[in-house]
């Protein structure tokens, strides 16, 4: 059972459950004050505005008690996917490197973006080809990826960058970077391949009725 952790202010939890269910997974919302169910085989940290984005996006949720259980589960190899606010929570909790902070535009960016698959050799990207361009929606005010130069080089060397913002043809350019992210980074792996975060929303691009199913491959990563 995939646990979609619902914090106060999460708002993509139902979308995640619906998209995962459509892919054939058993998925349930789990309130952050409740324990993770024993039968948890995967964890989604969904998008939204947990704790009203007070202090920094994801800062409060990252320190909530359930995150201790999430870190323990991740350490045991349970796959964890953080989306948008969940990506901020992942970074704030130390599950994944870097920080997602205020967009360079200083505006909330709500639009469709193109992403280039940088590493197709992970559970989260195995459905794609390396270099493939997919289209996903973004909706965030704090999505600019930041990391010090030394650790960014390590991240690149370790092939832990999953997606970069690009244009329709796959060119990674400043113009195609919606939020000023370092290296156009849109999604990264944690210390192990089982943990990933990304700012774009695969769960909003997974139902055929919505006209774009490019995100299904990311969610399919829970199959392992």
């Amino acid at each position: 059972m995939i646990a979609v952790v619902q914090f106060g202010g999460s708002n993509c939890d139902r979308d995640a459950v619906r998209a995962l269910s459509d892919l054939g997974f058993e998925a349930e919302r789990v309130w952050h004050e409740d324990p993770l169910p024993e039968e948890t085989t995967g964890i989604v940290l969904p998008g939204g505005f947990s704790y009203g984005d007070y202090l920094r996006g994801g800062a409060m949720a990252a320190r909530s008690p359930i995150m201790k259980s999430v870190r323990e589960a991740a350490a045991e190899g349970v796959p964890v996917l953080g989306v948008c606010n969940g990506a901020q929570i992942g970074c704030e909790s130390g599950l994944t490197p870097g920080a997602f902070t205020t967009n360079a535009s200083a505006r909330f960016q709500c639009e469709h973006v193109y992403l280039r698959v940088e590493n197709a050799d992970t559970r989260w990207t195995a459905a794609y080809e390396e270099g493939e361009v997919i289209e996903l929606p973004i909706a965030h005010g704090e999505g600019r990826f930041e990391l010090d130069a030394e650790r960014y080089e390590e991240l690149e060397a370790d092939d832990r960058i999953l997606f970069r913002y690009c244009d329709e043809d796959g060119n990674v350019t400043d113009e195609a970077n919606p939020n000023g992210s370092l290296g156009n980074v849109a999604g990264v792996l944690g210390d192990s391949e089982s943990v990933a975060v990304l700012m774009p929303h695969p769960e909003r691009a997974s139902l055929p009725q919505l006209g774009n199913t490019d995100g299904r491959g990311v969610l399919a990563g829970f199959e392992g």
Partner: peptide
């Protein structure tokens, strides 16, 4: 260290 600042930024 633990909450008010994010050491990455």
């Amino acid at each position: 260290e633990r909450l008010l600042a994010n050491p990455t930024i």
